[in-house]
Amino acid sequence: MEFVAISLLNGITYGLLLFMLSSGLTLIFSMMGILNFAHASFYMLGAYFAYQISTWVGFWPGLLVAPLLVGAVGALIERYGLRRAHRFGHVAELLFTFGLAFVVEELVHLIWGKSSVDYKIPVELDGALFTLFGTDFPIYKGFMMLVSVGMLVALYALLTRTRIGLIIQAALTKPDMVEALGHNVPRIFMLVFGGGTALAGLAGVIGGNAFITEPGMAAAVGSIVFVIVVVGGLGSLGGAFIASLLIGCIQTFSVALSISITDVFALVGITLPDGSQVARLTITQLAPVLPYLLMVAILIFRPRGLMGSRES
């Protein structure tokens, strides 16, 4: 029971952070049809910008400024790079973001060096929020949850309550129609790309000090974010939300299960021949691979994802 409660908390916190990352990617994909391979690079940029700002004026201004800066960088990249690549089709766009990820990582090396930087949790947020069954729950994790839920609410309000949000929503499903109605779709694209990358930047600001700010951080989360977007359903924010929480919890709980594949089969009455390496693998060992398994399974059995409405 204790363990379930603690794991659930851990899973939800991690899931919410994943949602911050994947929401931007989902928005971009659903609007522009671009699978932004460099999305995690913007997450990394957010962390580094926030680190830089925190060394000058502290953490709190960085929380606001860093995502905006990342968004501006994203918008510029859309305007002067991606839009050009767009003329050559989706593969070119995808490859553009693919190359961009390389370049961003190298630029980070160039500017901040190749080791990790000392991006600290602010003193106000250091410490334990409460103690549950003898395990501390850090304040910072609570803060992360707060920020991501706040972002979710703000995003929801923006999309459903404002004019621009309605246009974006309309463009999700019927871009041609929106364009025909006289809206400047390229500019909306730029806004969405900037906004999506700013969300990734925000995730970087609060994830960078919870984990470690270093040049490999983009590569570390890059593929898991794709998994979420695919599992949730391409273009579905709600799906991304559910998939984020699902994967956060799967990863947390699977770590807890020290049973091996042999045991799993034994549960249903099949005895596996002993000794093979596969049979001795435990669920814990498999934990980080499970999201990919889930993704492949989803793509085979339900290609439009949990909540998606289109197949590709």
Partner: peptide, 21 residues
């Protein structure tokens, strides 16, 4: 089974899985 983005994503997933395994 599918072409396009779905194919790209499945290959990405399978590639990651095989590499991790």
């Amino acid at each position: 089974r599918k072409a396009g983005t779905t194919f790209a994503m499945i290959t990405l997933g399978i590639g990651e899985m095989v590499a991790a395994c």
